[in-house]
Amino acid sequence: METRQKTYFEEFEVFSRKTQTSPVQYHFSLLAPNEDIAIMMAQENFMRREAVDDIWVVKRQNIRKMTAEEKKTLQRLDNKDYRTTKGYGYLKKKWRKYEQEMLDEKEIMSWAGGVKNGE
């Protein structure tokens, strides 16, 4: 059984999101007796001068971090073009032969607002 020292100072990690579409960002850690107090401390401690859309607090003991040994698994060879558009860039030339433009990332992402009809 876990025995833990009774303390007011529990560790919480604080994250926030700037806008509804931005990724969550890590800020810093703070001490508080429980998560309700932690979340009430978070904005004023770390985001006094910036706008935020949402805040998360996570008890540190619930975050599983990588060990130094595990971090070694993060390395990759630089031979994975087949996973990215970079490996298919030659299609641009191909399509040109058929008098078509390539549907690249820029083009495809621009469809977000709807595609204009045309022949």
């Binding site: 100072f9 703070l30 001490l31 107090i37 009430m40 401390m41 004023e44 401690n45």
Partner: peptide, 11 residues
């Protein structure tokens, strides 16, 4: 009562 609260209540 603690530093974090000091900062928050100052706001």
């Amino acid at each position: 009562p603690h530093i974090e609260e000091d900062v928050a209540s100052s706001s």
